[in-house]
């Protein structure tokens, strides 16, 4: 019988694996952003597992990691918002949003 902590741990590992795969290998930026959110969720569950194990004081559940997860969620939300805003601007500027690599060498405006 697998313990609930181990189950959560495996869940977290699975989410991290899916997220990393998407973030590294998907060519479309929107999917990368979603993959980042999956990756983040996996990490937050890791914190939940740490809380459950109550490593700090042998409590039933340690509250500190939960506080960290809340902060982490806020940060991940902000990151998603910035990424989506950038994507929208990119889409408005026309053309594909795929990452083309280095900037256009023909363009010689000063930057």
């Amino acid at each position: 019988m697998i313990s609930s902590t181990a189950l959560y741990g495996l869940c977290a590992a699975g989410l991290v694996a899916i997220g990393l795969y998407g973030l590294v290998l998907h060519p479309t930026p929107l999917r990368k952003v979603i993959a980042f959110n999956l990756l983040g969720s996996g990490t937050f569950i890791f914190f939940g597992v740490a809380a459950r194990r109550g490593a700090a004081a042998g409590l039933l559940a340690d509250p500190v990691p939960q506080a960290m997860v809340i902060t982490g969620i806020v940060v991940a939300f902000a990151a998603t918002a910035v990424a989506v805003a950038l994507l929208l601007r990119l889409a408005e500027s026309g053309g594909s949003t795929l990452d083309p690599g280095a900037p256009d060498p023909q363009d010689d405006r000063p930057s």
Binding site: L23, F36, L39, T43, P103, D107
Partner: peptide
């Protein structure tokens, strides 16, 4: 446009790093 793309790429690298 190029700078938007560069910024997005920077953000994605930075996000992998922070996770």
């Amino acid at each position: 446009r190029e700078t938007l793309q560069a910024a997005l790429r920077y953000l994605l690298f930075a996000l992998i790093g922070s996770v």
